[in-house]
Each structure stands twice: as structure tokens, then as C-alpha cells.
Amino acid sequence: MFQEERVDFKFEWEHLGNLALGRPNLGPTTHIALYRLMQFTLRDALIRHGGVELANRVFFDAGRNAGAAIYKHLLNAPKDMGELVRSLQRSFEELGGGIIRVEEADLEKNHFVLTVAEDLDCSGLPLMDEAICTYDEGFIAGILEAHLGIPFRVREVDCWCTGDRVCRFEAVPRDPTAT
């Protein structure tokens, strides 16, 4: 499964494994530092081998797949945007992913502004004057696309690493023909 070449994404929820069986002593949680170690060394290697653009595309696509999988397996088919937000907030806080809040939700134009505080990826990182939460961008796009059935463009407009205390994401419908 993880050694096959592919042209389509093949991730499935079952690939996360049986954590109760596999980690009877350590349990399902880990230290954030370990997660970030993997995230940033992976990003480093991707940039080294393929460049920044490729690294961003990989992180965005991976985040989008994760968002779609979380929507399918954890969010219990929310019937409207309010229920989606509540369900996502609850799941994300339970998983320790961050504190999600909504600042704008224009349901006619499908324009959303979300913030994530205590973000898993970046909160506490040094100032770098660059937004780095590309995985979160993809994640939010994946959630919205799964819920609304249209493609989304998500951009991180504020990040802990640009001096803000929350990461702020703006999501708008994406022209399906755009790359």
C-alpha cells in the first residue's frame, strides 16, 4: 500500500491502524514536538528535493485528504454550516489540533474566514514573516469541499509566524478549471 506508485490518492482511514491494539501502553497521543519534528523535517526534505512550490502542493494536498477523511469519519454528516462548525470545533479540541473559530460565514457567496488558535503546526514558532500552515489550508479546503461539494481556495492570511496570535484562513470557492 505505501510502496505502490500512484496517480490518484489512495489514503484510507484504516491506514491509521488500530491504536488500542498497537499502543496499549503509550495510548493514542504523542508529544507535539514529535509531530512538528516530522512535519518540518519532511517539509525541509521536500524543499531540498523538489522546491518550495512542490512542498507546498504536497502539504496542501495531504491536508485536503485529511480534511475530507476527518469530515467523513468524525463529523457525523452535519446538516448545516452551524453544525459543521460545532462538530469540527469539538473534534479538533478533543484531538488537540487547535481552537477553531469562525469570524465570517457568507453562505450565499460561500466565503468564510476561520481562525485557529493554539495551532498544532505553528503556535509558538519564532517570527519568520511567512505564513507556514499550508497543511491547514488544505485541511480546511478538504472539510469545506466535503460539506459543500464545490472546490475551495484557502489562503492563510495571518499566522503565528507572521506575528499574529491566531492563524486566520480565508476560504472562497475556487474556479474548478484553475490549477
Binding site: 452551524g82 473559530r101 469562525v102 469570524e103 465570517e104 460565514a105 481562525t115 488558535a117 517570527l127 506575528g163 499574529d164 496570535r165 491566531v166 486566520r168
Partner: peptide, 27 residues
């Protein structure tokens, strides 16, 4: 605000919280 002082960060935190509160009140 491009401010970087801890006090500026506290204001930004408050700003984000109030923006979410505005949305919640609207809801």
C-alpha cells in the same frame, strides 16, 4: 496591527476573540 510586543499580541488575541464573538452573536 504589525506590532510584535506581548501587549500587541494580547490586543490581537482580543481582536480575534471579539471577531468570533460578533459572528456568534449574529448566529
Amino acid at each position: 496591527s504589525p506590532g510584535r510586543l506581548p501587549a500587541a499580541n494580547a490586543v490581537k488575541n482580543l481582536q480575534a476573540a471579539l471577531r468570533h464573538l460578533v459572528w456568534q452573536t449574529r448566529q
